[in-house]
Design a binder for these strands. Structure first.
Lengths: 224, 224
DNA sequence: ATACTCATGTGAAATGCTTCACAATTTATA
DNA sequence: TATAAATTGTGAAGCATTTCACATGAGTAT
């Protein structure tokens, strides 16, 4: 088959597949540090609590990266996965809202590690505007649109209160930014073509709560 | 059918259904504040970008809460959903690791709103131990196990570096805590019966990145 | 060489999830 | 009271995702 990693592929890759690729990427980085030359779908599956066939199927959507009898070359596969995910480059990210969550995200190591560079900060609080966070001066949110454009920002993280999130996002959209990661607990409206993902931390606590109350055990992990 | 909310129900509720219940809960709270008496599956679906049948099917797993011709009574449905999710009560939560993320979570409003009360904090840093965060004195992580037990903690949020997360979790497990929300970028090992959910913030950025690079548009939203 | 083992890649089968379509029930209206 | 409109609850159909199973190829040992 041999699909040029994620460009021509037109078979609707599912959201879960993409999420699993993220997980593979992290595990491959780890395996690389542990000096593994190759890794089998079995080993990868074990580490991620998946089935080996799932791993193979996921990867096979994008090409054929392994060697029969041997497995996948770790470094190479990692490079391929990072290319598929589009993280084989740097993304210029702006963060709006320097509150509790926002401040935490500025120094969040995993973002940088994967090429997400927060290069602009915005807030509406006069006490914060002009202050320095990890080397970045906080801008006035009034200039959001123009500064996003002037600085060629490609992604925006929204970490403002629910009440103002939509206004912010309207501006972000006007600045032609096509990707938004939203931490505010609201459903944002954006025109088609703009991607929004919501980070909803209480959801996972709720899942735990549900699981406890209902004795809900995770799906049994099979063999191959 | 009439299943006594989530106790006898044995039909394997999918993870997505639970996550959607979380979303319904949030929207129902909003509708309540907007003084809606009732809401139709159509309206709920519109707000969540789902199909009305999806909404009805999700709810019908747990009983029959609506009235034909009218819709669902908002307040009542909200109460039912919160019971299903197990958030019609207070959960005693401990937070381990008062770093960037940890500090942000201590004051995270959405947790409290939904009954997740962070009542204990732990860290290993002498400068932090004994200090006061939002009225809670930070405990020494050395006493993790005993204090979790003495204080009847039911859930633990892990916000420590990847390198130490597993050690923390081993202790948490010894303290008989059955629910863990993990922010550390590692796959934790726990015995069966212990629930772990991972909060993986870079995953959503990666999804955005993938979507941008591949022109991946969200699945078309249908009507009913 | 030959046989044996390991492990990928992939159609086909199995399973799971979502949407359809409609009977049933309620409210509103004349 | 009859008719029309709204909307639920749910089997069945339609799709999507996961798992199975096996042909195929690579490495290893004798």
């Amino acid at each position: 088959m041999d699909i040029p990693s994620g460009v021509t592929a037109r078979k609707r890759i599912s959201e879960s597949t993409i999420h699993r690729l993220s997980r593979y990427f992290r595990t491959l980085s780890l395996l690389e540090r542990e000096n593994f030359e190759t890794v089998s779908s079995k080993e990868l599956a074990k580490r991620e609590k998946l089935t080996p066939s799932q791993v193979r199927k996921d990867l096979s959507f994008f090409g054929s990266f392994g060697t029969r009898g041997l497995g996948y070359p770790v470094a190479e596969l990692k490079a391929k996965v990072s290319k598929i995910l589009g993280i084989d480059r740097v993304w210029r990210v702006a963060l709006v809202g320097i509150g509790n969550i926002g401040s935490a995200l500025v120094s969040y190591k995993e973002f940088i590690k994967q090429g997400f560079h927060i290069v602009k900060l915005f807030d509406n609080d006069q006490r914060k505007i002009g202050s320095n966070h990890k080397g970045i001066i906080v801008s006035d949110i009034k200039n959001l649109r123009t500064e996003l454009q002037d600085d060629h920002i490609e992604m925006v993280i929204v970490a403002v209160p629910a009440t103002v999130a939509q206004y912010i996002v309207d501006d972000v959209v006007k600045a032609e930014v096509k990707a938004i990661l939203n931490f505010a607990p609201v459903n944002l409206k954006v025109p088609s073509g703009v991607h929004v993902r919501n980070e909803n931390m209480e959801m996972e606590l709720e899942y735990l709560s549900f699981a406890m109350v209902n004795n809900h055990s995770p799906k049994g992990v099979g063999k191959d």
